[in-house]
Amino acid sequence: MSKYQLNYLAQLEAESIHIFREIAAQFEQPALLFSGGKDSITLVHLAVKAFAPGKIPFPLVHIDTGHNFQEALDYRDAMAKNIGANLIIRKVEDTIKAKKLTEPKGKFPSRNWLQTYTLLDTIEEFKFDACIGGARRDEEKARAKERIFSVRDDFGQWNPKLQRPELWNIYNGRINKGENVRVFPISNWTELDIWNYIQQENIQLPSIYFAHEREVILHEGQLVANSPYVSLDESDLVIKKQVRYRTVGDMTCTAAVESTASSLVEVIQEITAAKISERGETRIDDKVTEAAMEDRKKNGYF
């Protein structure tokens, strides 16, 4: 390799930093949607680099479903403090009360769908014109079709048939009043790219990404954390297992994987050898219908 060649992680990093700077320059009120997961942690890491030695010029926003892992919340607070970022937290619980929304029922009641309401209210409250998210195109079929700058109407809806052409590295972020843009700076990264980058950059992650002992319920082949948000019945067997998380979402809709990987190197080894995709293994909500993501995105979901 000549000294003027970038390896693939450096190329991806350069692209993401370029996108972050376009966001800062093109929008008046951008915000970074922070979930506590490894993708949004990587996103924050890249944002810090993009504006160094200055601070990141937008707040971090967390839509708190109330079903989060405590480890992820602690991590969130420590990180925001560490980088001196403004952290805005809005709770789904409050939206449910204010709007008298009906909570989903069932064994693993997921607030994943309800958080769209809180998100749209938060966008309205702070007049955010761009929301930065950590979605990757390799995650899912509907994501594979989304632009890096994705324009949403005032209901937050995505119209896949009317996307703007996105040419070269030119990003058109011009919008009309009421519209906003979702921007995905790590669109071109895969799960493995993220892990390799985390290792290269020595990025600290919440402890739940590494093997630990946890009380879980075995449900249709998936391991779901035992938590106050899960309704147990007599047939459920609560067992203790060595597990880790591959993605971190709500406790009720993210499954754990059995693992003994306690270091990054071991986690990456396991992922490289994995035979099941990240979403397939750990997302409980996507299994409902084949077009689940397409439908949610059209309705304003990230």
Binding site: A144, K145, T190
Partner: peptide, 15 residues
Amino acid sequence: TIDVAYRYFSTPKRK
């Protein structure tokens, strides 16, 4: 196919 979709794969040599 109605729009450009992006796919990712890698081999030991290249992404």
